[in-house]
């Protein structure tokens, strides 16, 4: 009986961290990195700065995942990131808010964006695809009104943070570790089970006494927090406010979550796998660059590859 229980515990933890999908995703990540190194051995020298580029995408992937798990989708993560970036830089440039409030502002805008989406989807019961597509346009439009072209700089101490790291620890480590810890905190928290239950079968969740609409609202709020964190890293990386920075990230973030096991029908998906997928996708972008694709064709090639990957993942899963 005791050994049986130990075994059950092990199996359960395996189920919670979704070992199979996690290993697939790690495989995808390592495969792309190795391919990168083969094509261009100099990649190894820049491996930290390329990985740093993956941090915002990792957070956006988690933002997308947490909503997909509950059976909804968020088309506005890229635009939300842009708004948080632009508003914060604007506040520094024109209102001198350059102390710790500069960080706080990113998170507040992210949260606000998430809460608005949460109200629209969770409380007003608007279809999440349409609702967030609409808010996406609004955030982008708003960002353009605030800054109509890329502007800088950002506070010097924040810029140095990304150059020198925090207490000597590079920001890429801090970013990945933070995303990992936040995810695991969520996954082993009671509420995550209610997220998965609400997405897997809302009616059953309701019968078990779970307020499904409230869960969706909370999911979008947490999603907003992740968007804010993503923006924080994006600002540090580009060291400016850019009203066009986030748009292409929405599709990539969805792809990261899908490779991380999520489905549009909800109820499944893993965060660690999503983070690995985000790193893999970032290196893929680098790979396309390394292969010598001309600058103006990179978007085209990258998007085509993303679409192809999406099709492959969907096809492989279709069998089940």
């Amino acid at each position: 009986m005791i050994s049986n229980m130990k075994n059950t515990k092990l199996q359960l933890i395996k189920e919670y961290i979704n070992l199979k999908i996690m290993l697939t995703s790690i495989g995808f990540m390592l495969g792309i990195i190795i391919l990168n190194v083969i094509v261009n051995p100099r990649t190894l020298m820049y491996i930290d700065s390329i990985t740093l580029l993956a941090v915002p995408l990792a957070f956006l992937g988690l933002a997308e995942l947490i909503v997909l798990v509950t059976g909804e989708v968020d088309m506005s993560v890229g635009a939300g990131l842009t708004l948080a970036n632009v508003v914060s830089v604007y506040a520094y440039l024109y209102h001198g808010i350059g102390d710790y409030r500069f960080i706080l502002l990113h998170l507040i805008i992210g949260l606000a964006v998430g809460i608005v989406n949460g109200i629209i989807v969770g409380l007003l019961r608007v279809n999440s695809f349409l609702g967030t597509l609409a808010t996406s346009s609004i955030w982008s439009g708003l960002a353009l009104v605030i800054l109509n072209k890329p502007e800088g700089p950002i506070p010097n101490w924040y810029y140095r943070l990304f150059m020198d790291g925090l207490w000597g620890i590079p920001m890429v480590i801090i970013g990945l570790l933070a995303s990992l810890l936040i995810w695991l905190y969520f996954r082993f928290n009671k509420i995550s089970l209610h997220f998965y239950a609400s997405g897997s079968n809302p009616y059953s969740a309701f019968i078990a006494g779970i307020n499904v609409n409230l869960i969706k609202f909370i999911a979008f709020t947490l999603n907003g927090l992740f968007v804010g964190l993503a923006a924080l890293f994006m600002t540090g990386i580009i060291a400016s406010g850019d009203p066009k920075i986030g748009i292409p990230y929405t599709l990539t973030a969805i792809l990261a979550a899908i490779i991380g096991g999520a489905r549009f029908t909800g109820g499944v998906g893993d965060g660690v796998a999503t983070i690995c997928a985000a790193i893999g996708l970032t290196f893929m972008r680098n790979l396309i660059f390394s292969l010598g694709v001309p600058f103006y064709q990179q978007d085209l090639v990258y998007s085509a590859v993303v679409l192809g990957l999406l099709a492959v993942v969907m096809y492989l899963r279709g069998g089940r």
């Binding site: 359960l12 998965y196 079968n201 059953s204």
Partner: peptide, 11 residues
């Protein structure tokens, strides 16, 4: 039934 297909039996 009022079960959640994507969660383990115990949950």
């Amino acid at each position: 039934f009022s079960l959640v297909p994507d969660l383990p039996v115990i949950n």
